[in-house]
Computed example of a mutant assay.
Amino acid sequence: MTTSDTISANDIGARGAYLVVINGAGAPITVTVSDSSLTPVGNPATTTASSVTNATSKTFYISPAAVNLTTNVVTVAFSSATSVTYQLFPLG
């Protein structure tokens, strides 16, 4: 794992997926999931970093709308990759 990974649209599927981030590090990390969707009036969606406390896990929903149509992936950025793992659970 690196501080920036990509998830293929094929892995996310038509119904989205849950990304479970497990922070085994001694400090909190931030996770940012790219969002290439648009608001109802056509503005780019806002991407917000979310904190995962050390020695805990947090689940993120990744919508199919978040997929960048040019690259066909969603990018997930981590503030640190040390002792951090994740699992992806497609919804079907």
Rank of each mutant, 00 (worst) to 15 (best):
P44C: 07
T3Y: 10
P40S: 08
T6M: 10
V76I: 14
A27V: 14
T3F: 09
Q87T: 15
Q87A: 13
S57P: 12
V20H: 13
T2C: 14
A65V: 06
P44W: 02
T71H: 03
S36F: 04
I62D: 00
S63N: 06
V33T: 02
G16E: 01
G92N: 05
I62K: 02
P28D: 14
I62R: 02
A45P: 06
G92M: 01
K58T: 08
S37P: 04
V21A: 07
R15Q: 14
A14M: 13
S4R: 15
V74F: 07
A81G: 02
F89K: 05
P28E: 12
F89H: 07
Y86G: 05
T39K: 09
A49N: 04
F78E: 03
S50N: 00
T82D: 04
G26Y: 04
L88T: 05
D5T: 14
V31M: 09
I62N: 01
A45E: 00
A66G: 07
N68E: 08
Y18T: 12
L91Y: 05
N23I: 10
Y18D: 09
D35Q: 01
A55R: 11
T48V: 09
T70I: 10
T3P: 04
T70A: 08
G16F: 01
T82K: 06
V20I: 14
G13R: 13
G92H: 03
A27S: 15
F78W: 02
S79A: 01
A55Q: 09
N54D: 11
V31H: 05
Y86L: 09
T56E: 10
S83Y: 03
T46D: 00
T39A: 05
T39M: 07
P90H: 10
T82I: 06
T32N: 03
Y86S: 08
I22M: 11
K58Y: 05
A45R: 06
Y61C: 07
I12E: 01
V52T: 06
A77S: 08
A17H: 12
S79G: 05
I12V: 12
S37E: 02
N72C: 11
S57M: 13
T75M: 11
Y61Q: 04
V73L: 05
V31N: 03
A77L: 10
A9S: 14
R15I: 12
L91K: 09
V84N: 04
T32C: 04
P40F: 07
V33C: 02
M1C: 11
S8H: 14
S57I: 10
T59R: 04
T46R: 07
G24F: 08
D35E: 01
S63T: 09
P28V: 10
T3W: 07
N72D: 13
R15F: 14
I22T: 15
P40E: 06
P28Q: 13
V33A: 01
V84M: 06
I7T: 04
T2A: 15
N68A: 12
A49D: 02
T85M: 09
V67Y: 03
S8I: 13
V20G: 13
T47Y: 05
